[in-house]
Structures are given as C-alpha cells and as structure tokens.
Design a protein around this nucleic acid. Structure first.
Lengths: 186, 186
DNA sequence: ACCTGAACACCGTTCAAGT
DNA sequence: ACCTGAACACCGTTCAAGT
C-alpha cells in the first residue's frame, strides 16, 4: 500500500482517537503506517500542516443548521453543532483551537454563521461570529480537558451536566446580546 | 547566587519575553541560570508548574476596575484590563489559555467578575464570568498570534485597529446580553 | 518518484554520585 | 540540602543513498 496524504491523515486521526494529541508524533504516525519517519515529509510539509488537516476533519463534521430557523435559534443550534463536533473527537477542541489561532486549515468554521447573521441584517457579522466561535471553543477546550483529567483520575469530580449548563448559559447570553441589537429589520 | 523557585520563574519570564513560549525549555532556563537542567527539579516539580507560575504572573497584572462602576461599564473595563494584561507579555494569551485549561495556576481570573456580577444580582455569575473570559482569551490568542506572525513576515497584513474593534464588538454584544437579563433588581 | 538509514539538534525527566 | 554528570526515552526535520 503506497503512502499518501490521505493515508497519513487517516493514521493521524487513529492515533488522535486512541492516544490523544499529546502522543501524536510524526514518528508514531510513521510507525502506524509501517514506514520511516522521514518518508512522511514527501507527502506533508510538516507536522503543523498534518494537524491542520486533522482540524479540518473535525470542522467538516459540523452539522450546519437549516437556514429556515429564526436567528436566535439558528445561532444556538450552530453553537451546539460546533460544540458537538469538537467534543466528538479526542482533543478535538484543543486541536481546532490551536490550528485556528495559527490561521492554518482550509476550513473557516464561521462562514455559515457570518452568512446567517448577514442575512438577518446584523451589523459586524464577522466579529460577531468569531466572538461566538471563541466562546464555544474556550468552553469546549475546558470541558474536554477536565473530562479527560477526570478519566485519568487526576480530577476527582467532573459534572458533565454542569458543563452543558455553562455552555448554554454563555451562548444564551451572547445570543440575547445579538438579538438585542439585531431586530432592526428594515 | 543560590537557585530558587523565584529565580527560576524570573528566568522563565525573561526567556518568554525574549524568545517566546515555543523556545521556553527547561534546558534553556537552566542555561540562563548557569545551572544543570536537572537542578531545576529540586525547586519545581515539572515544566507545567513553571508555566502555571508564569501564567499567574500575567494574571496578577490585571487591573481590576473599581467597584463603583455600573455593571455594564465594569464588565467592559474588566475585559479590557484582562486583554491588556494578556497582550502585555509575549505569548501571554496562549500561556494563560493553556494553563487555565489544565486547571493549574493559583489565580482564578474570574473571581472579581463573579463578585461584581453577584453583587449586581445576575443569575449564574460563575458561568457568565467564564464565558466572558473565554471570549476575551480566544480573541487575545488570535490577535497575539497574528501580530507575531506579521512581525515574522509570515502574515502580510495585520490590522491592530480591526483586532480592537473585533474585541469591542464581541464584548459589547456579550455585555448587552448580560444587561438584557440583569436589570431584575429586586 | 518514493522510501530507507542515519544523522542533527534538540526535548523533559530521573538519578546516582558528589559536596 | 542542593547540584553535577550522565543517561533514558523520546522529539521534528533533513538528506545522501538506494530502488
């Protein structure tokens, strides 16, 4: 089986799910594929770009809400879908957060939200969408990290319900803020 | 000069400002102090705890607004002070973000905000403060990363004014959301 | 074109041994 | 008690050499 960009990404995802981001090394990817570490660099320029590809995979799984929903509901649904996608993979939130900060990755997760906000006539749709993204991302990173530390026995208590309430609270407040400005339909 | 926890933290801060988080290694800290790398472990349990101490240093510099301000103004001022402290040090935002996610570090930056929200009678002061923290942190990480990539010539354009507007927009919306729920003074 | 083998320049952390 | 020297088990990346 010939090596390829897709095979490398696949092995990366496998390692991510099995061992986590901290144990995802180029050497381990190479081992998984039964190949020498240097061989990877014929298909991938560096580790960062591999991580960006994995982040894209996570963001590709976001279930964008249907356009028919009212703005407030749409934003809440989008935030929930984003959160679900980030939490679906081990270290998904951290992976996306760092990849996004670096500006790598082919997928801009705010695109659908910007479109929906724009359609609703909200001012500054870009900054608004990015703010909501950061809120969701930060919450998801914290939640995922703590749930993992709980699983490792480092953290004694972890309340998944509380995390979800925190999330709903933050998103709810933000969406209220948006709609307190938005309804200038004209 | 004897080695100490304070001396190690000081060397860490110096390296952080001069070379950045990516080049902050235990070996480099040891070199700076003219000591063998292993010697550090007599004063510090591991690298994470050193990073947590550095994050605490950043958070200690946050200028908490005076309690007299109206809630909305207070929250905006707090967010601005937080952002300023994060941006004041090289990689400050990223450092605090990762240290906070890990739950290390002796300083919980939300404490004053929780107190102010509680005083104003806002429901769920904890989740509210954390949401605002994540918003500010995410924005700051992005801004700091991009400004650094611009300085390195990797990113061609970086508009500091736009970053500040983005920040003001996100915080403004969130604070609007808070005050659309808060004024239930009773 | 694609991969191996081996190297380069690093890491964090541990630990016997010295003082 | 505090530090050295040296090791262990890794890293990401490069590159001549082979096929």
């Amino acid at each position: 089986m010939a090596l390829s960009r897709a095979a490398i990404t696949g092995a990366g995802l496998e390692i991510l799910d099995t061992y986590g981001l901290g144990d995802l090394s180029m050497r381990r990817v190479a081992d998984t594929l039964g190949v020498q570490a240097g061989a990877l660099y014929y298909h991938v320029p560096n580790k960062q770009s591999l991580l960006a590809a994995l982040a894209d995979e996570v963001l590709d799984a976001v279930d964008v809400p249907e356009a028919g929903l009212p703005l407030e509901d749409w934003l809440v649904a989008w935030a929930s879908a984003l959160r679900a996608a980030l939490l679906a993979r081990r270290d998904g939130a951290e992976l996306v957060a760092s990849s996004l900060a670096l500006g790598l990755g082919g997928i801009d997760p705010t695109v659908p939200a910007v479109a929906r906000l724009d359609e609703a006539g909200v001012a500054m749709p870009g900054p608004t969408a990015r703010a909501l993204l950061h809120l969701v991302l930060g919450q998801a990173v914290t939640e995922q990290t703590q749930s993992q530390m709980h699983a490792l026995g480092v953290l004694t208590s972890f309340d998944a319900r509380r995390a979800e309430q925190d999330f709903a609270c933050g998103v709810g407040i933000f969406v209220d803020g948006v709609s307190s400005r938005a309804p200038v339909a004209r």
